[in-house]
Amino acid sequence: MRFPASRKIHYDSGPNLTPLVDVVMVILIFLMLVGSFGASEHFLVSNLPIKQTGPGRTTPPAGWVADTTLEIRVDPRGAGFEAVAGRIRVTDARQLEEQLRRMLEQFQQAGTPPDKVQVIIGPGKVVRYEHLIRVYESALSAGFTKVAFATSH
């Protein structure tokens, strides 16, 4: 039995894409399973100040000149925190940032550049890490470049 359609000329327009789709699908599934995503995380870079006394003491290198230090004392207050730096006493990260910015201006007017000021955050033992990071971020936002943690009080 003959079918008239079988005598007609057939042609495919373009190459056969089926193997390509197979391979591409395998790659896609592999990437989806193996890949991990860390795009929503970043890092606050800290330095450890050179200390010649205490538990974290280190030997200073030759010719080392100590930076001007600015201590920020942080204590828990209710559900938040209280930060004290010199005459500054604030309970809000944004206020702290503004006050620290003014202090940095004063340092600069006195001829001390920001990279010669070592900010030292001195937390109480039970201060939450979250609040310390807020204080840390406020110091960075204010323009200080060297921020570190001290031993607890």
Binding site: E41, H42, F43, L44, V45, S46, N47, L48, K51, P55, G56, R57, T58, P123, G124, K125, V126, V127, R128, Y129, L132, I133, Y136, F149, T151, S152
Partner: peptide
């Protein structure tokens, strides 16, 4: 609390490490 992070920072200082990064 900071009391649980402090010993790690002290270990870093004792190991003469000066580059510490906090993930946020």
């Amino acid at each position: 609390g900071y009391e649980l992070i402090e010993p790690i920072l002290q270990a870093c200082a004792a190991a003469d490490l000066n580059n510490i990064n906090f993930t946020t």
